[in-house]
Design a protein around this nucleic acid. Sequence first.
RNA 1: GGAGAGAUGGGAGAGUGGCUGAAUCCAACGGUUUGCUAAACCGUCGUACUCUGUAAGGGGUACCGCGAGUUCGAAUCUCGCUCUCUCCGCCA
Length: 425
Amino acid sequence: MLDVKFIRENPDVVRQGLLNKNAKDIVDEIIALDEQRRSFISKTEELKAKKNQVSAEIPKLKKAGQDTSAIFAEMKQVGDEISNLDSQLKEVEEKIDNILRHTPNLAHSSVPVGKSAEENVEVRRWLPEGFKFENDSKVLDHVELGKKLGLLDFERGTKISGSGFPLYTSRGATLERALINFMLDTHINNHGYTEMMPPVLVNRDSMRGTGQIPKMEEDMYFIEKDGLYPIPTAEVPITNIHREEILAEKDLTIKYVGYSPCFRREAGSYGKESKGFLRVHQFNKVEMVKFSKPENSYDELEAMTNDAENILKALNVPYRILMLCTGDLSFSAAKCYDIETWSPAENKWLEASSCSNFEAFQARRANIRYRREDTKKPEFIHTLNGSGLATSRLMVSILENNQTPEGKVIVPKVLQKYCGFEIIG
RNA sequence: GGAGAGAUGGGAGAGUGGCUGAAUCCAACGGUUUGCUAAACCGUCGUACUCUGUAAGGGGUACCGCGAGUUCGAAUCUCGCUCUCUCCGCCA
């Protein structure tokens, strides 16, 4: 959520920022509503001050045996006026809140301005030694490989739940579990994260806190009977760990990592992009979440992106880093790097991770603050998160990039001790 | 699922209609004292919004789980909701 005071004081910055993000200009509307709001506040508070003052006099008058009926009548009227003003105030505040909840975050100044994904900027790429984009032998895609080697059974997954619910079988399941454990261990032991295993069903307040609601509500599963949402990412429960809290400056930066299954309805998306693992309703992801002081958050974003990259380097998976342009940035993000891994069968890059700095956008919604040691004042914290990484897309790259001409798959070295086997097939 | 009890500041815990933004204790922070530690003593010690001031600051309002109601006046009374705890049942 954007800060009303910031909008009031920097209308042109916000206007341009919203334009860059392909969002509706709400500046004038907010400023007008905010003026109304403050005028109601000063009127109502004036009356309340009067009411409190008179109320304090009443016991004294009563004690002195004076008649208070005239005062009672007057105060009754004041009370009515107050509740009238209060309800008007509430109405205005709800309007403001509603607009701001639907208004995206502004991009950081280092983000390239652009309309759509075509204007994202490739920052760097990393390719394993001897890697070639062209392949001499025929490359099987992950669906064919998974079927041939008995690792994945999309048909039975569909029977059990519906399309987009993959079933991992035998060594496919083991490989998946190995991958999750390897990523968690790396982040815990090499990158300094603390592991969290959060609930995967969360309440509405949590979904609101990280910004999935109200904007993305249609993409979420919802269990009506209990008012709970299956999480679309562990970002939601892990960021909400500190909702409504004031953290100590000395504890920052807080770095959490957690594995969870992720559930997405992906309403309205089917066709070519939905083959196999490319778009599924349930997938596994290891997520990194940081709570940072504002002045450090962009360094933390770089570090977090590197943490995700280290996983891919260790797995010997070719990848590239994109800096998203303003128009392609998600609702809550101020800056975001996408990490894409190479799929030789699809002959294209696939998004496997997204590392974002939300600055104070989520913190303001979720009311997550920290107390500065010098000023002692609470201030909104900056939140960041990044996939470290999503296994489904990663599995595509691992299977396809490590296949032998005979159609076997060599397990990446770092996963071998987790798997207990070195080659599949 | 059934029965009961409860929700007050960082924690414990008073407070049953005006003198309570909230006693007291603990923790924390600053200071005095001290060879060091401890103790003792003094002080500070919620958050948000708003007005005012260049600022330091000052004024006002709201908040005792959440929401509504009664009243001139609500932490205190009434209703609804949420959550927590205890007991019973069921259960991985």
